[in-house]
Design a protein around this nucleic acid. Sequence first.
DNA 1: TATACCGGTATACTAAAGTATAGTACTTAC
DNA 2: GTAAGTACTATACTTTAGTATACCGGTATA
Lengths: 118, 118
Amino acid sequence: METIIENQKVHLCSSEFVLAVREAMNAISGKWKLPIIGSLCYGTKRFKELERDIPKITPRMLSKELKELELNSIVKRTVHDTTPVTVEYELTPSGKKIKNVLDAMVKWGLEHRESVMV
Amino acid sequence: METIIENQKVHLCSSEFVLAVREAMNAISGKWKLPIIGSLCYGTKRFKELERDIPKITPRMLSKELKELELNSIVKRTVHDTTPVTVEYELTPSGKKIKNVLDAMVKWGLEHRESVMV
DNA sequence: TATACCGGTATACTAAAGTATAGTACTTAC
DNA sequence: GTAAGTACTATACTTTAGTATACCGGTATA
């Protein structure tokens, strides 16, 4: 993505491009989103299940992060009208596809660590 | 990556896996690393060139982020013994490969935005 | 001589992210 | 009736990220 303006190389990081990357960044940024997504990768989970799954997370952070993920359409929250109510969290289709991004990150991360070791 | 322990599905997000993702996250986290990497994608740049390239960045942040990127082996800093000294920054091979990760993020980001629009 | 460029650093601040600890309103099991 | 589980929220705090502004020693140009 580059062009020549008055003999100068200028790369037009189109805002589309940057916004898309930022979107992906937002989806997984912070200390807890990755563990949450990881935990939901293998099926729906309830609040307490997630809390138990993810060491050291506080209910405050779990609640906050789940809300953000829901707002971002990464996670779907379903309230079941049982007594007592049960609440289930699961990845949306879009949330599941983020695994491709994580795979790319793992691949790079491993290669990078190897290249640094040498 | 999962296994069965006493009838319970447990996903062993191996620390290798998590560390690799974190490594990639670190490389591009924060407000300025992405613009810096983007600017260096098309060749070596000097400090002031980067400063001009990246709107609103302060020299303090540029200096700090470049140091982090260098420590992380994403960016290589070369001091040329000229008068006055010139300092050049460029992506390492590993730094260049991070484009694959960004591509995956762009792809997901665009798909995600589309799926949310609908 | 003064003005500006180069590659930064110093100091002081604000804002955002995360933690610690406690508590709420409800339900079920003993 | 009391203890424990569910799905959270409230308050107050610390830590980290980022900003604003000024400055440094050196060099080059007018």
